[in-house]
Every structure is written in C-alpha cells, then in structure tokens.
Design a binder for these strands. Structure first.
Length: 404
RNA sequence: GGAGGGAUUGCAGAGUGGCCAAAUGCAACAGACUGUAAAUCUGUCGGGCUUCGCCCUUCGAUGGUUCGAAUCCAUCUCCCUCCA
C-alpha cells in the first residue's frame, strides 16, 4: 500500500498521479501508473544523461519535474551519468569526433549536473551512478553475448538508422552498441522504470528487451514530449543555441522567454510550469480573444524564474525587462566603466571592453545608430571618445554601461 | 584491394581562370515598427586604414602554371560512396 512507502493519503496519491500523467507521451505498459501508486517499496527509476554537454536546460525540466513527483511519492531516482558511453565517441557525426573525457572532466561535469538537477530533484531520493562502473569491466565475451540479443533488422527500425540506411548514409557498427549499452545499464541497475524524452524511446525500450533476455524483471518505459527551443522550431538543445539554461540568470531566462514565438506559449506553460489543465484552457481562451501575448509570456517568465530562482528575482527580471524594452529606460544596474586616460577612438574603446569583436564590427554598430551616449546617438565611427562620468553608454538594445 | 565523389567565409550550399571577400538560405547582429528580446519590414554580416576609396588575409595543405587561380596541374592530408 502506498501509505507504507510514505505518509500520503489516497487523495494525495490520486492527485499526484494525475499530475504525473498529464502530458506524457508514452507509458509502456499502461499498468505502470498503477504500479507507481501501489508499490510497496520504492521503485528504481532511471534517468540517463550524457556528460559531454553538462549544461541542462529547461527542456530537461519536462522529465525532471515528472521525476520529482515520483520522488514525492516515495520512489528512488537513479541519475545515470553516461560517462562510458560518452567516451566511445561518435565518429560519424559530421561535426567533430567527440573527444574522450578525462575522469576529472567527468567528475566535474557530474558535480555540475548535481547542482542543476537538484534544483528540481530531491537529493535524498536521488542516487547518482556512472555507467563506466560496470561497462568498463564488460569483457568482449560479454559484449558478444549482449550483441546477440538483438537483430540488425530490428536495430534498423530506429528512425534515424532507418533514414540513414535508406539514404545510403553511413552507420558505424559502434552506433548499434549505444542502445545496447544503454539497455544493459537497466539490466545492471535492475530498474523498474526508465524515463526520457521521446527521442529516447527506442533506447529506453531496449532496456525492456534486454532485461527480459537476461531473465530480469522488465522495466516500464515512460517518455515525455520534447520541448522546442526559443526558436519554436527545433528541439531545445545547447548545440543549436536555442536553449534556456537552468543556471542562467533570472533576467536572461525571463528575456529569453519573452523571445519565444507566440505559438509556443501554451506548450511552454504545459510542459515547464505547474499550470493546471483549467489554467491552460483559460490562457488559450485569452489568447484567442485577442489578449496581448506579451502578458502571457510575462506570466510564463515569472513562473519559470520564480521556480528556478525566487519570486523576488522573477519580479525584478520582469521589471527590468519592462523598464528597458517597454519604457526604453536604462536598467537600474549596469556595469561601470572608467573613462580612458588617453584619447581613444570609440571603436577601440568598444573592442577593448568586448562590446564588439572587431573595430569593423564596432564601426558597423555605430553606423547603424546602435550606439548612444545618454540617449544621443553616435554617428561618427571615427570619432574620439568623449564620455563624461555618470553618462550612460548604450550598445544595441540591451547592453548598458555607466561611466565613473 | 579496385573504381569514383568530395573538402568553399558559423552552418547549409552556389561558384570551374579576371566582373569573387565569393550567389542564395539559415543563424547572428543592428535599425524601424510593436504596450514582446514574438511576427513583419530594412540593413549588416573576414580584418585593417588617412573609409563611400585603398590595403591585407581567406575557398583542406604544400608547391607549380599564368599578367591574373576558390577555379588549371602535381603531391599530400582527411572524408564519403560503390564494387570486392
């Protein structure tokens, strides 16, 4: 009975379960939800992460929030750092071959993961594990046995493999090992559930298959939808540069939320906030009846920053945003720069302080009318510096500096 | 092992002797507009300068042909495909 796990009423359990189930993509088998509610001992839930890109973003929040609910119901999350799988590298990626990470890097990244993950997860109910721990020891013999558990034909069913195969693009053998090893992790950890984004569905299902082949109890598979990045088109990812990082400042997070396409507002609300279905309907109604989407984005930004930082910081971020962008005023805090002691050209000054990567770029900014001193636009890119103390230099829309 | 295709400015992708710092798209940056860092429109997008003109460095690497090369030749490096 659930109450044996943790002190929760039947009603609490029902509510939490409903909250958990909301918006999930796949639940295989469906009975997994019952099991979550009625388990008599904590279920072991695996969530894997690739340590080569240790910056988590709000796209990860979708799954992490779900995991947190499970923890609150008394279950255990095994946060798996795929340090071994990351070390294999991926030579076919047309970017560059992944560099193997040193164990120091892995450690550092794992630490960084923790600070990020524990913004959402409960440390007391989270176990961090590294798959190199057992995969390092896997012998060739065992590797062959593992490979024998799956066929090429079935492997090629995976979307991206299928696509590449039909387009006669290369697939390296070791790429087949990825899903196998990921599944093998579940065999070793004896997970009851594995969670991930929908892009992980195939790999996660492999865990089920392999557990069965190895004569273990079979894990349930639960996937959550992927969140598009701030461009509203591609999935959120750091390498695409369309992400909002969990560790970014509240102001940046808020600003980035304000830059998502209006069509993404409801999706963001449903995936990364605790908005109830009723609220979502209300928001949809408001949008349909012509409410300025700006206000909903503000609400979204406030909720996100409140959650990741604090309500106070959220209000500050909102105020600063409106101050700078709606009222076109200067922000309250801005970096302070000293006035150069010797005659300096604006372009040199700007490059010196990182306002532009080259003098050429600096003069372009000036020619575009993007640089102003106390509201007065600088026009001459050849001019010499003439700032005075307390004056405010503005570069572009959102960079402000004050002279001292 | 054999045959063929390719390497271009952040990415994608044109360009096959001068008009090429190199089309176009995306991204990025800026301006206008907007009660948004949305959308849309416009512009910019290697670097430097005595800045509307000039100079320097770039088209995998090195050497060569030529008045002149991203474009032709040679060698090398890397990548891919097919056949075995």
């Amino acid at each position: 009975m659930p109450t044996a796990l943790i002190n929760l009423s039947i009603i609490d359990i029902k509510l939490m379960l409903a909250q958990f189930a909301q918006g999930l993509q796949d639940v295989i088998p469906e009975s997994a939800l019952d099991r979550i509610a009625t388990a008599s001992k904590p279920l072991k839930i695996k969530f894997g992460a690739d340590p080569s890109a240790p910056d988590l973003h709000i796209g990860h929040m979708v799954v992490l929030k779900k995991l947190r609910i499970l923890q609150d119901m008394g279950h255990l999350v095994q946060f798996l750092v795929g340090d071994f799988t990351a070390m294999i590298g991926d030579p076919t990626g047309k970017s560059e071959t992944r560099k193997p990470l040193t164990s120091e890097q892995v450690k550092a990244n794992a630490e960084s993961y923790k600070t990020q993950v524990f913004k959402l997860l409960d440390p007391a109910k989270t176990q961090v594990v590294f798959n190199s721990e057992w995969l390092d020891k896997l012998t060739s013999r065992e590797m062959i046995k593992l490979s024998a558990q799956y066929t090429v034909a079935r492997m090629l069913e995976r979307d991206d493999f299928q696509k590449r195969f039909s387009q006669e693009r290369p697939i390296s053998i070791h790429e087949f090992l990825y899903p196998l090893l990921q599944g093998y992790d579940s065999v070793v950890l004896e997970n009851d559930i594995e969670m991930g984004g929908t892009d992980q569905k195939f790999n996660v299902l492999m865990g089920r298959h392999l557990q069965k082949e190895y004569g273990k109890p079979v894990q349930a598979v639960i996937t959550a939808p992927l969140l598009e990045g701030v461009d509203g088109v591609q999935k959120m990812s750091k390498s695409l540069g369309n992400h909002i990082g969990l560790l970014e400042s509240g102001q940046d997070q808020f600003g980035k939320i304000m830059s998502i396409p209006d069509t993404m507002i409801l999706k963001y609300f449903s995936l990364i906030t605790d908005a109830s279905p009723e609220e979502l309907l209300q928001f949809k109604f408001e949008l349909d009846s012509g409410k300025n989407p700006k206000f909903l984005k503000e609400e979204l930004g406030v909720r996100l920053v409140s959650f990741l930082h604090s309500p106070q910081e959220a209000m500050n971020a909102k105020e600063a945003f409106n101050r700078v962008f709606s009222q076109k005023l200067n922000p309250e805090d801005m970096p302070v720069l000293s006035i150069p002691p010797t005659p300096t050209k604006w372009t040199d000054f700007m490059v010196l302080h990182g306002m532009a990567p080259s003098k050429k770029e600096a003069s372009r900014l000036i020619e575009h009318g993007a640089v102003s001193l106390d509201g007065e636009i600088l026009r001459d890119s050849l001019a010499f510096f003439l700032g005075k103390p307390e004056q405010v230099l503005k570069v572009g829309k959102r960079r402000f500096y004050r002279f001292k």
